[in-house]
Computed example of a mutant assay.
Amino acid sequence: MTSSAEHGMQVSMLDDFLAYTLAGKRPGALETQGTCANGARWSWLDDGVLQIEPASRGKGIRSVLASAGVHGDETAPIELLSHLVRDIARGRAALTCRLLVILGNVDAMRDACRYRDDDLNRLFSGRHTQVPQSREAPRAAALEQAAIHFFAAASDEPGARWHIDMHTAIRASAFEQFALLPHTGRPFSRAMFEWLGEAHISAVLLHTTKGNTYSHFTAQACGAEACTLELGKVRPFGRNDLARFAGADEALRHLLAGTNGSVHSAMPRAFTVIDQLTKQSEAFELLLAADVPNFTPFVKDTLLARDGDYRYTVRHDEERIVFPNATVKPGLRAGLLVVETTQDTLAGLV
């Protein structure tokens, strides 16, 4: 039986996990676990890290890591996750899988900024060891360990491990809601593409090299079907129209409930990375309007960037730019160039 003290902690923490986390609260030693209305067991593991196990577990049960706030100012998906925790706690959302909820850069969330020293989503796969003085480095290490520990108890059956990392973009996009899939060397998953279609994701960016994002880490180190979702624009807490993200929210809830959503959703268009712009020095220039949307197309021979002797000129009949950002630190990515590969990509799904 749940004690009154445990029930009170459960209500205050799970009813608004976001507010609880932003307030810097931490449960006492005897208050880190409890039971939801549907019998699921929750465990508070760390600041912004909550694990929920379903009431019953079968062989091959799915394990899902759902994360948001890896960039502290990307508030809409953080709010969606907090509402999801509340609904599971109250028995309003079904849970048939193992779930790990992570609010990523909590300190940046509290400061209403993207990050404090370094972009947390560039510090995974051990890159945090290269910036030991960064205030983001310990968090990157902690989130790596949280994922490793969670998936260590997961089934090895195909499709049993998932990671949905939810973000919002800095700028507008020709496709308002899109996804990025990490490069693993394995064929891309039809189940993931179908889930993205259900989530109303209209475009998918396919990486062709390994990266240092959280979804790259879980795909490589934990064998997860992992994706990064870009669900709109950065806005302050409380200023989001969450109805605009209903597709992703409902698709995630269906994934956790083990139910099928819309089976007739259109598959997203696929775009493959063919190059990136790297800022080599403070002389770097992006020869674009400051507010050019993601996935803006450019024709062959268009000069897009220069940096000293370096020039980037469009080589294909059409290339689209994603994440153009001239303000990054030297040595970091200042933009990705992609070409559409929908037909070949969909034909190669497994």
Rank of each mutant, 00 (worst) to 15 (best):
D309Y: 02
N105F: 03
S82M: 08
T129Q: 13
F284H: 10
V70D: 01
A174E: 15
R92D: 12
D119N: 15
Q133L: 13
V273M: 11
S189W: 01
D275A: 15
G247Y: 05
D165A: 10
R320F: 01
S56A: 12
A257C: 08
S43C: 13
R90Q: 15
E6P: 00
E53H: 08
F237C: 03
A40I: 05
S173H: 09
L256N: 05
A147F: 05
R86C: 12
Q343K: 09
V299P: 00
H316S: 14
T208I: 05
L14W: 08
I52V: 15
L206W: 01
I102V: 15
R26C: 10
R244A: 14
N240H: 08
A257D: 09
A248D: 00
A248L: 02
K233A: 11
F175G: 03
F284Q: 03
E194C: 08
L277V: 07
K279A: 07
D111F: 05
T218F: 01
A19N: 12
F323H: 05
D307E: 06
E225A: 07
A174D: 07
A137H: 05
A160K: 04
Y115K: 03
T213K: 02
V339F: 02
L346Y: 04
I148P: 00
A55F: 09
E79L: 07
R320P: 05
Q177A: 10
S63K: 04
E157R: 10
S189K: 03
C97P: 00
R62Y: 02
P236H: 11
P138Q: 13
G185Q: 07
R90M: 11
Q33A: 12
D344T: 12
S155A: 14
F295I: 05
Q177D: 02
G238R: 07
V350R: 12
S4T: 13
T184F: 07
V338N: 03
A248V: 08
D111R: 14
S265H: 14
L349V: 07
G197C: 06
H167L: 06
H207M: 11
Y312C: 13
M9C: 13
Q33K: 15
R135A: 14
A243V: 06
A29Y: 03
L349I: 07
Q177M: 13
A40K: 04
A283R: 14
A283V: 00
D111Q: 15
H71A: 02
A137C: 04
G258I: 10
S173I: 11
L120A: 06
P77M: 05
A270W: 04
R244T: 13
Q133N: 13
V234N: 00
S63P: 06
R253S: 10
E6H: 10
L30S: 14
D46C: 06
L303G: 01
L255M: 12
H254S: 10
L50Q: 05
G48P: 03
V263N: 10
Y20L: 09
V339C: 12
P268Q: 12
T21W: 11
H83I: 03
L231I: 04
D117T: 14
